[in-house]
């Protein structure tokens, strides 16, 4: 991609953001209030961190459908550790460890044992949901949450930013360093493009796939830590709401910027959060949110598909010539 097209894509993205923000602002001026923008950034943090992890899996051209279930299990593990009186850092590491372990398991199953990614991750996600019921038989956990300092992760500030947003920015920075600013990142893309060619070029293909799945599991659990910190309770369906926004963010970003990358995913997340937040302000009930996200996702994939956008482009000049 030349700098020129990148510039055009960034301009296009800015224009879309401005249009969406303008539309919601005209309906409800509170949309651009400081309070709402902070709420938006917090909402973006939860979905953004999950989408960040998924980006790696999509880059190596695999799929992970287990992360919502794994995130639920991570949330329950963390909640159980806090309720059991463990210090906060240990509880959070416990939750993240769950994500890492499931991610590594998925990665090894897919890379080493060549199991089909979609069905395998559906199965491990189902297992994780089953495990998440073990701690409390399915009831939500919130004991000791107030005392433990977990809620400060949501309420605290860091360098003038809300802490969840600071965490997202930090995670994104690390993500950029890994994926888009290092040899390591090249190896991810190479594995996704052509596994055989990458292998002959000296890329440890299997290790890259395992790393991608491990990062995805880890990020899913980090995002659910933020979610639990904002809602104040861990429950067994905590992770399910991560699935659609994460996929939508990665695919929307990839559609806008030509290929999946950390910045593209951040852009996709921002668009999704803008829309979801705006519709919430317009008092649209919660059960419509997946309908909105999925409609946007289907439209984005369809319109940005090279063949379809090519056909559309051919259509438009043809009409202009007729007019002239």
């Amino acid at each position: 991609m030349t700098t020129n097209t990148l510039f055009i894509r960034i301009l296009a993205f800015g224009a879309i953001v401005a249009i969406i923000a303008g539309l919601f602002w005209s309906q409800n001026p509170a949309f651009l209030s400081t309070g709402n923008i902070r709420a938006l950034m917090r909402h973006m943090s939860v979905n953004g961190v999950a989408a960040l992890g998924l980006t790696f899996v999509i880059v190596v051209r695999h799929f992970d459908l287990s992360f919502p279930g794994v995130a639920s299990f991570g949330a329950m593990t963390m909640g159980w550790l806090i309720a059991g009186g463990q210090p906060l850092w240990m509880a959070i590491s416990g939750g993240l460890a769950v994500g890492l372990l499931f991610g590594i398991f998925n990665g090894i199953a897919v890379a080493r044992f060549k199991l089909p990614d979609i069905v395998t991750t559906i199965a491990t996600g189902g297992l994780a949901i089953g495990f998440s019921y073990f701690y409390s038989n399915g009831t939500s956990i919130s004991r000791n949450f107030f005392m433990s300092g977990l809620l400060d992760i949501n309420d605290g500030r860091f360098l003038g930013l809300d802490r969840p947003f600071a965490i997202l920015l930090g995670a994104a920075l690390i993500g950029i360093l890994i994926l888009n600013a290092s040899r390591f990142g090249r190896a991810f893309y190479a594995t996704g493009e052509n596994e055989t060619a990458a292998w002959y070029s000296g890329v440890p293909v299997n290790a890259m796939v395992v790393a991608a799945f491990a990062l995805c599991g880890l990020c899913a659990c980090l995002s659910v830590v933020l979610l639990v910190a904002s809602s104040g309770a861990a429950n067994v369906s905590a992770g399910t709401q991560l699935l659609m926004p994460a996929f939508a963010a990665v695919y929307l970003g990839a559609a806008l910027f030509g290929r999946p990358s950390v910045l593209a995913t951040l852009a996709g997340t921002m668009l999704m959060s803008l829309m979801l937040n705006g519709f919430t302000l317009l008092a649209i009930p919660y059960y419509y949110s997946d309908a909105i996200v999925s409609t946007v996702l289907i439209l984005a994939i369809t319109c940005f598909d090279p063949r379809i956008s090519g056909a559309l482009r051919r259509l438009i000049p043809a009409r202009k010539e007729k007019l002239a």
Binding site: L243, M244, Y286, Y287, A291, S294, I298, I301, T302
Partner: peptide, 27 residues
């Protein structure tokens, strides 16, 4: 018809269907 990726499309259409189903019964 358009040869778009099956998994992502059916995840999205499934989420759309589930969301409308919840909306019919108001949750």
């Amino acid at each position: 018809g358009l040869r778009l990726p099956a998994l992502v499309i059916t995840i999205a259409s499934g989420a759309l269907a589930a969301s409308i189903a919840a909306a019919i019964g108001l949750g």
